[in-house]
Simulated assay, not measured.
Amino acid sequence: MEDLRKQHRQELKDLQSQITQKKKSATKKTRKGVNDECAELERRLKTKQQSELSGLSGNGITPEENSEGAFDDMTEPPQEMATEINGPINALPVSDEPPNPGTGKKPNRQKARLARRAAEQEAAAAQAAEEAEDLPNLRSRERDTMREHYTSRGLKEQDIRPDGHCLYAAIADQLLDANIGLQPRINIRGLDTDGLVTKTDYAATRQVAASYISANPDDFAPFLEEPLGDYVRTIRETGEWGGHLELMALAKAYDVNINVLHGNGQVDTIESASQDDAKSLWLAYYRHSFGLGEHYNSLRKSEQHS
């Protein structure tokens, strides 16, 4: 009996390996057929092993009658078989409940779905926890590499408050540091330039970006997922973060090149309208170092490169 049970455990392990390989190679079109095939393989193995146990014991019990407890001392499936490409798989169906008499052995599909869903949720929680543990390392690495790039380019960092206005505040700091000022260098239809004098730095650049986009709808509307008027109103009246489109508008309005330095050393350049002796502004773009998420700081020339 012990030799037979040992053989059964090995057969179970081999079948688990076979099923995993089948499911990994399945496509969306073939997945249902593969799952049905795997279920049939499991049923056949279970029936075969139950018959062998009944025959060896010589008690004349049929496989169906002996199904409860026949596999109780089987080893648990190996850990490496617990997951596959499309999510966790169940162990071979050794049911916790005896089969319903007269109806044959039917897998409890609802119970299997619940178990699979619980395993997926547990895996997602574990992944989130792992990423959270690694976050301090991402921040540290990003900070260190940024400092290296500042030094190599002769720049120093000017901290900007990490809020929804950071892009606009960083541009304003660069404009003032370069003696350009907050008045746009081109005429923008609908912009009250006199009113910019009374606004805070980031509020002024917000107004310029919003007015430029509004005055040049063909350059921006194709990239928006909402009406242009709503988008412009958000820039002008809220603390919504700015991005590439706003940098494009500011580069054209102030006729400057805007260089955005990333933690990996990549520099994205948004070019000015004329390119004739255009001054260059520098921003630092962070992905991991600030609690609110993405952030822009201003990068000025260091004293030795001034």
Rank of each mutant, 00 (worst) to 15 (best):
K199R: 14
K199T: 02
D201K: 12
D201H: 10
D201I: 04
D201F: 09
Y202H: 12
Y202P: 00
A203W: 02
A203C: 04
A204W: 00
T205V: 11
T205H: 01
R206A: 01
R206I: 05
R206P: 03
R206K: 14
Q207Y: 01
Q207A: 09
V208A: 02
A209H: 02
A210F: 07
S211D: 09
S211T: 06
S211K: 02
Y212V: 02
Y212P: 05
Y212G: 03
I213H: 04
I213D: 04
I213Y: 05
S214H: 08
S214Q: 11
S214C: 07
A215N: 04
A215M: 04
N216R: 09
N216V: 05
P217S: 05
P217G: 04
D218F: 00
D219T: 00
D219E: 07
F220N: 06
A221M: 03
P222M: 01
F223T: 04
F223Y: 10
F223P: 00
F223V: 00
L224M: 02
L224D: 00
L224Y: 00
L224Q: 00
E225Q: 12
E225V: 07
E225G: 13
E226R: 10
E226P: 03
P227T: 03
P227N: 05
P227L: 01
P227D: 10
L228S: 05
L228I: 15
G229N: 13
G229K: 09
D230M: 14
D230W: 09
Y231N: 03
Y231D: 06
V232A: 11
V232P: 05
V232C: 12
R233K: 15
R233L: 14
R233V: 12
T234I: 11
T234F: 04
I235C: 05
R236H: 13
R236W: 08
R236L: 12
R236G: 09
E237F: 06
T238I: 08
G239K: 11
E240S: 13
E240I: 10
E240A: 15
E240Q: 13
W241K: 07
W241L: 10
W241F: 11
G242A: 03
G242H: 02
G242Y: 03
H244M: 11
H244T: 07
L245I: 07
E246F: 13
E246V: 13
E246C: 13
E246K: 10
L247V: 14
L247H: 00
M248H: 15
M248T: 14
A249V: 10
L250Y: 07
A251I: 13
A251D: 11
A251Y: 12
K252C: 12
K252N: 15
K252F: 15
K252R: 15
A253F: 14
A253Y: 13
A253R: 11
Y254I: 11
Y254C: 10
Y254N: 06
D255Y: 06
D255T: 07
V256I: 14
V256Q: 09
N257M: 08
N257P: 01
N257E: 13
N257D: 14
N257C: 08
N257A: 10
I258R: 06
N259E: 11
N259H: 13
N259D: 09
L261P: 04
H262E: 14
G263A: 15
G263D: 15
G263T: 13
N264T: 11
G265S: 10
G265P: 04
Q266E: 14
Q266I: 09
V267S: 07
V267W: 10
D268W: 03
D268C: 00
